[in-house]
Design a protein around this nucleic acid. Structure first.
Length: 414
RNA sequence: CGGGAGAUGUCAGAGUGGUCGAAUGUGCCGGUCUUGAAAACCGGUGAGGGUUAUACCUCCGGGGGUUCGAAUCCCCCUCUCCCGGCCA
């Protein structure tokens, strides 16, 4: 959630920033009004409560001393009655405020490039030369068929479209990649976790998926539970509603989980192959950092993900997202896009974001800065998306006859 | 899933309608004593919000109710432990 006090005191600046993310000024004006109303109600209500408390204390004292209480009772009853409608109003104001506030995206950093969509993203650098195949490289779904690596039809039979089955060597490759990623991340200082793949609604609100993006989530029937769309949710929310010490920051975490997404708005996109599935595996990095240090941690995460691709011999480019392409929670995002020769294009394989204090505010993750509690910064990034790495290996390591080499660094894992 | 017990400050643990934000012990901080430490003794010490700082509000697992007033009474939920069932 954005800092409502900041919005209150720097309205012009805040609204300029949020226009980069397509937020209407009228929405922000409404939010500002709701915030003022709630504050006003709370101030009067607190004063009335204080009055009520002191009269109640007197009440007990009178009784002990055997004094007459009838007059006091009239006053106390009147005050109580006067509070009721105000309490109701304050409650309504709070509900209305949060309904709007929870749907407002994060401020982009000042340095984030202007732009409307991915066309305006900035390529920072390319890593590794593209390979010259000397023949027409095939797309991964063609290679999957030739090698018997992916069973698309039976995956659909078991669940529905956008589910698939990896077979034999492909399945082993997936297992090898997960281990390779986790080992690499651990060497960089990230602590490995195995977490629940189902989280409750409060956690999904903490990282920003709820309430606005519930349509993208698989919900457990009759329960307050959802399949996680990314390990970012459980890893970040491990510290939900906690106050950390400054010494334990930064907390660097990594974990492998399957991810479940409805892909509600993606009908017709990437329908062939396993680029876009309802269930996919991912190894995630999450960091909880001191606000003054989160930029350093961000660089570490980008470098780590890029190094993994380099170790796998996969050409890729590093792209900074423009304001219009930033996700809901992100203040800044760098995508790593891997080269897919079969598709003749770069495709996202990792996305690393600094959410600053946006998620920390929602999830109430703070640290002790002297006597004061301050919000931490939270960061997340893939290292890496496993399914898409398999695609990239298939397309980049294919031979003319359709056979696929295994990258050198993975051989000890196979 | 069935039966029983429980949830209070760092921890342990009292408190069954007002003087309770909460006894006592423990831990922690400071002091006395000591060459130094330990022990002993004395003093201080819960959390969140809010404020420049005070005031003030909230918090005894969570939510609702009764009452002028709730840790304490009533209802619902969650979690933990024990017993039984089922089970990887």
């Amino acid at each position: 959630m954005i800092d409502l006090k900041y919005l209150q005191n720097n309205f012009d600046d805040a609204s300029t920033k949020l226009q980069k993310k397509g937020v209407e000024i009228s929405t922000l004006e409404q939010l500002q009004i709701l915030f003022k109303i709630l504050k006003k109600h709370n101030v009067t209500l607190e004063a009335m409560k204080a009055e009520q408390n002191s009269m109640s204390k007197l009440f007990g004292q009178y009784k002990r001393e055997g004094k007459d209480i009838s007059e006091l009772k009239v006053k106390v009853d009147a005050n109580k009655e006067a509070m009721l409608p105000l309490q109701e109003k304050a409650r309504e104001a709070e509900v209305a405020l949060y309904e709007v506030a929870l749907a407002i995206p994060n401020f982009p950093d000042d340095a984030v490039p202007e732009g409307a969509d991915e066309e305006d993203n900035i390529e920072l650098r390319k890593v590794l030369e593209l390979k010259n195949f000397g023949f027409e490289p095939k797309e991964h779904w063609k290679l999957a068929e030739m090698n018997g690596w992916i069973d698309f039809e039976r995956g659909v039979k078991l669940a529905k479209s956008r589910f698939s089955i990896l077979r034999g060597e492909a399945s082993r490759l997936e297992r090898a990649l997960i281990n390779f990623f986790l080992d690499t991340n651990t060497q960089k200082g990230f602590v490995e976790y195995s977490v629940p793949f189902i989280n409750n609604a409060a956690m999904l609100q903490g990282t920003g998926q709820l309430p606005k993006f519930g349509d993208d989530l698989f919900k457990i029937e009759d329960e307050d539970l959802y399949l996680i769309p990314t390990a970012e949710v459980p890893l970040t929310n491990m510290y939900h509603d906690e106050i950390l010490t400054e010494q334990e920051l930064p907390l660097l975490m990594t974990g492998y989980t399957p991810c479940f997404r409805k892909e509600a708005g993606s009908a017709g996109r990437d329908t062939r192959g396993i680029i876009r599935q309802h269930q996919f595996n991912k190894v995630e990095m999450v960091a909880i950092a001191h606000p003054d240090k989160s930029d350093e941690v961000f660089e570490l995460m980008v470098e780590n993900a890029s190094d993994i691709l380099t170790a796998l011999g996969l050409p890729h480019r590093v792209v900074e997202l423009c304001g219009g392409d930033l996700g809901f929670s992100a203040a800044k995002t760098i995508d790593l896009e891997v080269w897919l020769p079969g598709q003749n294009q770069y495709r996202e394989i990792s996305s690393i974001s600094n959410t600053r204090d946006f998620q920390a505010r929602r999830a109430k993750i703070r640290f002790k800065d002297g006597k004061k509690n301050r919000f931490v910064h939270t960061l997340n990034g893939s290292a890496l998306a496993v399914g898409r790495t398999i695609v990239a290996i298939m397309e980049n390591y294919q031979n003319e006859d359709g056979s696929i080499e295994i990258p050198e660094v993975l051989k000890k894992y196979m």
